[in-house]
Design a protein around this nucleic acid. Structure first.
Lengths: 251, 251
DNA sequence: GCCGCGTTTGTAGGATCGTAACAACAGTAT
DNA sequence: ATACTGTTGTTACGATCCTACAAACGCGGC
């Protein structure tokens, strides 16, 4: 079995199929259609198991059955299978989150606790970045060395906040990043203070008003890890510390 | 625990979470944020298990961690969670079906085998109906007693085929169905021949050209079950038989 | 010491995986 | 006609893996 196939089977398992189900489904697409024997011959699924597995796939709407002797199976098209799985997924998601939204408690008083949260994973950090940027009402400082950390949603949010009257300041030593914002109205571009050690493993820094901050580093198994805080005294102090060190360096 | 909650947990399990993961996630939304003890107090998840379960949820991007003593957990918003799960789902689906599409064999010569396939489940029958209708190039006969069997995609396909010059004939004794197509150009509406027994359990009939046919009945655990065939001699014969009986009745 | 926190280890139970046996049937040779 | 051969579809049964669940442990703070 090829590595590609193993990867595909893994993916199907993530989607909720068993490995047998994945193998039978793939085999049927190789064959266009076939009997339990045909399938067993080109997979390591025992023939006696094919029948029940196929039945389960039929229930999921991934194949069709010809009642004949021998029984013949036919996969639905890739497009139809995708659409079927997608709609099942959406239906389950609706069921699941409907309840969560109902019991969700309203956050009272905008994050009054002294909390510093950790977020692991590039995508998660992207999301939280947008989140914090969106809450800014007066000023934003956004810094990064790497242009790829400026995703379209982040760029959009920065521009949108700038348009809303927020003073947006992008800090980067990299031309690629600087050019990205050259054309955006209301965004000022700065270089980082010379005294800052431009650590290879540094990621991004986000400051929103005087009480929202996110700081990320690259490294570890997750690629990027960030800490953030919003509305806490801790955040305010951290921000003051960071900005004070800049002030001093300037003088 | 409420029935609603049980249902929500089931849904989360369908989405790939374990029941503990679902319970912790829901509990965290109830609490807005909390420690392992907080969570264990309002669920039947043992406190000692919360840590590993939360770690797994963090990997999935469904909660964030505050490294403190005690450790505090915070769920991501419902919107963010949905989006995260959705993108994971899409990514897995891409991985899975990319491979299937690559190994898929081209159907040689348009269904040359003498196959009659069985399709179970309302949605699957809808899909197959559209499929067969789309293949018609000269004439279509579409019949049903029930207006709900005329879904928007089916209605669209009928109209589209009619516009493409296909002679489309909708057969129904029900006014609700008949009115649905009164305004569609190129669609003629007929009543079923009087001699046809209008069985309560009959579903729909689709005839496309002289070689595509689908016939469904209602009943059984799946609600609706259909048989269909396309491009086969069997299909042609079946169609001729059905239409011959009509011709005779007219004379 | 005492108590709560976080970690580790161990034990059932269930679902999937994998093998094997079985009756029913069709075709062939005797 | 009978026996033999091979296939099909069904059923049963261990092996294996993962989750659910319980208990014990080391640790640090009061």
């Amino acid at each position: 079995m090829s590595g590609d196939e193993t990867a595909a089977i893994d993916a199907f398992e993530q989607l909720g199929l068993t490995s047998y189900e994945a193998k039978v489904f793939i085999a049927l697409h190789r064959l266009s259609a076939g009997t339990a024997r045909d399938i067993a011959d080109i997979t390591d699924v025992p023939r006696s198991q094919v029948y029940s597995v196929a039945e389960s796939l039929e229930d999921r709407g991934l194949l069709e059955v010809q009642q004949s002797n021998p029984i013949r199976y036919r996969p639905v098209s890739v497009e139809e299978a995708r659409e079927t799985l997608r709609s099942q997924f959406e239906r389950e998601q609706e069921r699941a989150f409907e309840y969560v939204a109902a019991v969700e408690r309203e956050p009272e008083g905008e994050e009054t606790r002294e909390d510093i949260w950790t977020v692991r994973g590039r995508d998660r950090v992207d999301d939280r970045t947008v989140d914090i940027l969106s809450q800014a009402e007066q000023r934003i400082v956004f810094g990064t060395r790497l242009p790829e950390f400026v995703t379209p949603p982040i760029e959009r949010t920065l521009a949108e906040r700038a348009a809303a009257g927020v003073s947006v300041s992008v800090v980067s030593g990299r031309d690629a990043v600087r050019e990205q914002f050259a054309a955006v109205d209301g965004v000022t571009i700065e270089r980082p203070p010379a005294h800052r050690t431009d650590d290879q493993r540094s990621g991004r820094i986000v400051i929103a008003d005087d009480d929202g901050i996110l700081l990320s580093v690259r490294g570890g198994a997750d690629g990027e890890t960030a800490i953030w805080s919003s509305g806490s005294l801790f955040a305010s102090v951290l921000i003051q510390l960071i900005e004070a060190s800049d002030e001093l360096a300037v003088e």
